[in-house]
Computed example of a mutant assay.
Amino acid sequence: MQINGQAAIVTGGASGMGAETARHLAKLGAKVTVLDMNEAAVKQVAEEIGGLGLLCDVSSAESAEKAVAEARAAHGPARIAVNCAGVAPAKRIVGRDGPMALDDFRKVIEVNLIGTFNMLRLAAADMGTLDPLESGERGVIVNTASVAAYEGQIGQAAYASSKGGIVALTICAARDLARSGVRVMTIAPGLIGTPMLLNMPQEVQDSLAATVPFPKRFGQPSEYARLVQHILENEMLNGEVIRLDGAIRMAPQ
C-alpha cells in the first residue's frame, strides 16, 4: 500500500510508540487521526502533525464508535489502523495483601485485548466499504503485543495474558478478513524507550539495556514506526507477529 493520501487511525497516540507512529505516517502523507485517553496530549500531537486528535476509551464500544465516526467524517474511512493503546500495571497473582483483585486483571484485559479487538472490528468494517486498490487490498491493521506474550515476568499475569490474546488473534483475524482484502499484523516490542522506561533511574535503565543481546540499548519508538511503514508497504506481510526486541528473552523478574 502506498501511504501517501491514505486515512489512518492510531490509538494510544498521545505518547511513545503511538505518537511517533502518528508523526511518521503524517510525514509520509497520511491523513492521521490520533486517539487517546489523554485529551490534552492527543490534541497536542494532532496539532503538531496537522491531524485530528480525539479522546477515546478503546475498551468502550460507544466511545470507539464515536471516535471512528468522527475520524471518518474528517478524513474518510481509514485504510490504515495502528493499535498502540494499552496499560501495563504490575501485580503478583498472590501478594502480601492476598490474591490480586479480579477487577485489576479485568481492567488490563479490557483495555489491551478487548480494546484492540474493538478497534480492529470497527476499522475492518470501514475498510470493507472502500474500493479495492489495484492489488485488491482494502486496508491494513497493525496491532501491538509484547515480548511478555511469550516470556511474561513475575507480576505480569494480566499484561502477558492480554498480549498473548493479541498474538493469538493475529492469524485468526487475518484469515477472517482476507475475503475483504484486509491484512492484519502484530508487532511485539521488547524494551522500547518510552516515558515509562525513560523515567526510571539511570542505573535501572542501564541494567535493563544490558540484558538486550544486540544492540545493547532500548529500542526507539521511531524503529517501531518504521516497522509499521514496512508492514503497510509490503503486501505479503499478513497474519504474523514480528518481535522488535534485539533478541531479548525476558528473565522471570
Rank of each mutant, 00 (worst) to 15 (best):
Q253D: 15
E39Y: 04
L197A: 08
R175Q: 14
A61S: 10
V94G: 10
R183G: 11
E233F: 02
V10Y: 03
T21V: 01
F105P: 08
Q220T: 01
D126H: 05
G12L: 05
I154Q: 12
K31T: 13
S180K: 09
R106H: 12
H75E: 11
L169R: 02
A225M: 07
I187G: 01
G181V: 08
R106G: 08
V34L: 11
V184K: 02
A22P: 03
V82K: 02
A74G: 07
S222A: 15
T129H: 09
S135I: 11
A26D: 07
T186R: 06
A81M: 12
R249P: 01
R217D: 00
R92W: 06
V184H: 03
G128F: 07
R72W: 06
V108E: 04
N238P: 11
D176Y: 09
R217Y: 00
F218D: 01
Q6K: 14
L52H: 09
I171E: 13
A88G: 12
L169N: 01
A101Y: 06
E134Y: 06
A81Y: 14
G86T: 02
P132W: 05
G51P: 05
V10L: 08
G98N: 11
D103F: 06
D176Q: 11
L237V: 14
V111N: 01
R243E: 08
I231Y: 05
L198I: 10
Y159Q: 06
